[in-house]
Design a protein around this nucleic acid. Structure first.
Lengths: 335, 335
DNA sequence: TTTTTTGTTGAAAACGTTTGCCATTTTGGG
DNA sequence: CCCAAAATGGCAAACGTTTTCAACAAAAAA
């Protein structure tokens, strides 16, 4: 690859000033006489000079780049978050290095090491769990981190999310109140704290409040895929289950279609409430009632918070955990 | 931000060799005695040294980073492509700077300038059109570019895609052969060449082959959103249309739900074939028949092609345009 | 005038690598 | 053993910026 043709030095020579002055102009430093500034800007335009961000990064130790870890870009829940992240990032002139973790501990570790090598100014983490090794790596690197739309077992890390436990509780209560006794909880792997500590707890809290005994037969653990819950539909009905609170939209659609394809009428014979309010809940037929989350905002606020942390205005410390409001959308899968 | 603590120089000192040797070890250069290599590697491990990719990028003029332009990360079609891109990128140790273009000419131009400033080694472009200014910028920058899953009017740029025109023709033929006369074409904005030059042409070719007159009333141009085609459903039925080939899955689901919600039976009263075979076509009820595209592969191959171009083994020139096979998935929206 | 003060500019040292070139060592053939 | 060739390793110059510090000039105060 040939050498960059027009550098700050070229501009300096043409404009008969020093590199330092050109740098000042480029960076909007006010200590430059307007006439000089104009002269330099003219040359910049004429030569079509564009500063080399890599050199800049080396000299300034800031790359204006943040790393974003996402389990899978094709998962609408995380994609919605990512959209908010990207928008705010571009508003603040940051670039995003996005990588799929495939929810694989080894891969995520490799990925983060790579990001740190690239000297990202910050990291946004989305995912179901954070390996200890990764946590250590991040902490020792001193790079600001924000966890978005996820729950990981660590109270030092800044987080933006909703109150999953309460949301789950409210959803379960709704189902119980529609005079259903047998309300199931269909969830992804319980090894992830967001499922076990948050959503399952919320489900249990609702049962307790309505004095319904907890029956672990009604907790249906799946691998989180559409197909896995589709396959459970028949079994659930045969077991006499009349409603289910479902921990994510993939599973909810799978369950719904499984039921429908087996001739079960939703909501007449079975009610469903899902958790994430992504497109899936709106394009299915019947549409699916769901807890609503401000997904875009979670991403946006996470990125905003990260910019503060990166600026190092340490005041950010106090608002380390942001819990946004959730809601409920009544659709066709509940009465 | 404080100075990087352990640098190549630290390692060199500890291992009693020069920076150059450390660099050789790190980069797997063979000109180093195994004993020396081992000694250096031990120190690297002990000090937990990690090379600074920014400095490396400056010195070597390679950043092992590629820019990816995506209209919208939440669009399943492009997200599937992006997944393939990301997988292959990480296989080849490249990082991805991902940015939403929002399909906005100004924004995409700004974004690409930014990417070039960041010295990306290559660019993958997805989108509906490429502003002239952008094309010029890319060409003059001499950065390799691959267009993925998109059609833009330029025959110098490397492209990976399917034969949209033929696919559209085959789909339309199927609908015509099911004894339907009034087959509509529901499409996104016709100002985009993929819609007008490719898919519309395919639609017309099918009509011609069956000796059916083209009726421009049957070309329904929308803004490409779910809602826009949902809203057209009623009008289409009232106009006596019996089937539609639809240019993307968003529109297809919108149309389908619009029909269903108006009491029209699919496929009995109306048949639909869509274009992209994303999840949407599988989770809707009825499911939607669709042209199938190897979306993941398109992304993967695009990235693979880009690595070749970046390596500069100029042999890549001959296989500049990759057209992958498409297929057809018969589902519930056609008989 | 002379002295301060303020505002502009330039020189040069970082930043942490890679790499071309040269010097030194090692190796192996005779 | 000697010598040429091959293997190994060091030096120092890039790479293109930012940033500190000092110098200088102009304006303000004395």
């Amino acid at each position: 690859m040939e050498k960059q043709s027009v550098t700050i030095y070229t501009v300096a020579r043409e404009a008969r000033v020093s590199m330092a002055t050109v740098s000042r102009v480029v960076n909007g430093n006010p200590n430059v006489k307007p006439a000089t500034r104009q002269k330099v800007m003219d040359v910049i335009k004429r030569l079509n000079y564009r500063p080399n961000a890599v050199a800049r990064g080396l000299a300034s130790k800031k790359t204006t780049t943040v790393g974003v870890i996402i389990p899978r870009i094709t998962n609408p829940y995380f994609a919605d978050l990512a959209l908010g992240i990207d928008d705010i990032a571009s508003m603040y002139k940051y670039n995003i290095i996005l990588t799929n973790s495939d929810n694989d501990d080894d891969k995520v570790l490799k990925v983060v090491r790579n990001l740190l090598a690239k000297q990202v100014d910050g990291v946004i983490f989305m995912g179901y769990s954070m390996p200890d090794e990764l946590r250590d790596e991040l902490k020792s690197s001193n790079t600001p981190v924000v966890v978005a739309g996820s729950v990981i077992d660590d109270d030092e890390l800044a987080t933006v999310r909703i109150d999953y436990e309460n949301a789950a509780k409210e959803a379960t209560l709704k189902l119980l109140d529609n005079a259903k006794d047998h309300v199931a909880f269909v969830t992804g792997p319980l090894k992830y704290v967001i499922n076990s500590d948050d959503k399952l707890s919320g489900y249990k809290a609702a049962l307790a409040e309505r004095h319904v005994d907890f029956d672990d037969q009604l907790v249906v653990e799946t691998d989180g895929t559409y197909q896995s819950s589709y396959d459970q539909a028949k079994r659930l009905v045969e077991a006499g289950v009349k409603a289910a609170y479902v921990s994510n939209d993939n599973l909810a659609v799978g369950l719904l279609n499984g039921l429908t394809d087996n001739g079960v009428k939703v909501p007449d014979d079975f009610e469903i409430i899902s958790s994430n309010d992504t497109t899936y809940t709106k394009i299915s037929r019947p549409t699916i009632s769901s807890i609503t989350q401000p997904l875009y905002d979670i991403g946006a606020i996470a990125m905003r918070l990260l910019t503060k942390l990166m600026d190092g205005t340490d005041s950010a410390t106090d608002e380390k955990d942001v819990i946004l409001d959730h809601g409920f959308a009544q659709r066709q899968s509940t009465r």
